[in-house]
Design a protein around this nucleic acid. Structure first.
Lengths: 175, 175
DNA sequence: ATGAATGCAAAGGTTTTGCACCCCC
DNA sequence: GGGGGTGCAAAACCTTTGCATTCAT
């Protein structure tokens, strides 16, 4: 009955379940070259300088990383480019966020920020408490109810973060 | 008829607006003595020992603190009890959380955990990006939509955290 | 030439841990 | 007496910062 999520049996998650359809398709994702153009625009508009390290960091992010913490990024970058200092990588984060390339999307259990490449479509997250996989969801009813609520309370919404901690039932059955 | 939030003009917020009616009334809050009983039960059931420091920490929390970080708590506790070590206070947090006395309710902008006394009624938070006040809300429509969503996706929900970052418009007008 | 970016090391801040001593049961 | 609990200091981490040097324009 609800077992029709079998379509991509090829990419099963650690917990054994099929991925939830993400609001953003892989085909909609920008390439490194496209993001590079976005970054260059930001750099130009702010009177900054282009640099090799920032380009290398961007490349690692868009080609290799899904949801990552800064220490994750430091490790991944230094694996390919051991000469890059951690401080440079830390300093690149706000630039990438300002450029709209990265979003700080949630916190891990130790409360470190988790970043992701901006997919262009707002979504929230479900974190599996068993396998630690991060799923994305977007629910219009929730968004609508939230907008009506904040309007009624006379708040001007800047952003929101809605994280559901849950367990994939398939994983619980395996365990 | 939803303008009845004028009742306590006496406690205006830093931003000048009246507080949103909180889902929990002050009168529903447990006293120190009641929480102490909860703590003792937890301590007994886990085979731990009662101790003066844990009692003193609990007392500070229930009598003085609303939403607080651990460093906040350390300062508040050591003001009254300078002999208590910070490590003891850090070590008391998981015990209080396990006992159901404290909830880790959200993170501040530097991503430190913010705790609050468990009110017994689930609520989520609106954080004003101007005055940094934390408001509470509870919206049945959002809860319902979320439950239906996770059911459809076959997740077993453990908990969730929904934080809306917004600005009180009254404050923006003043500023 | 000027200002920005980098790498390194040091400093800052929070949280955890090792350990000797103390207290509860 | 034995297993927790405490306090202190040190350690572990993540993140920021100061500074001399290099790079981009």
């Amino acid at each position: 009955m609800k077992t029709k999520s079998k379509k991509n049996a090829s990419h099963l998650l650690p917990c054994g379940r099929a991925p939830i359809a993400s609001p953003t398709r892989a085909s909609d994702r920008k390439t490194f070259t496209q993001w590079k153009a976005v970054l260059d625009l930001e750099i130009e508009s702010k009177g900054l300088n282009k640099s090799r390290p920032r380009e290398q960091i961007l490349e690692i992010i868009v080609n290799q990383l899904e949801h990552f913490t800064v220490p994750d990024l430091v490790k991944a970058v230094q694996k390919s480019h051991p000469e890059l200092g951690a401080a440079t990588i830390y300093r690149s984060i706000p630039v990438l966020v300002e450029a709209g390339i990265l979003l700080e999307s949630l916190s891990d259990s130790s409360r470190m920020a988790i970043y992701e490449v901006n997919s262009g479509e707002h979504h929230d997250h479900i974190v599996c408490t068993d396998c630690h996989q991060i799923f994305e969801f977007h629910d219009e009813r929730i968004e609508r109810a939230q907008n009506e609520l904040t309007k009624k309370l006379a708040f001007q919404v800047i952003s929101h973060r809605h994280v559901i901690y849950a367990r994939c039932d398939k994983f619980s059955k395996k365990a």
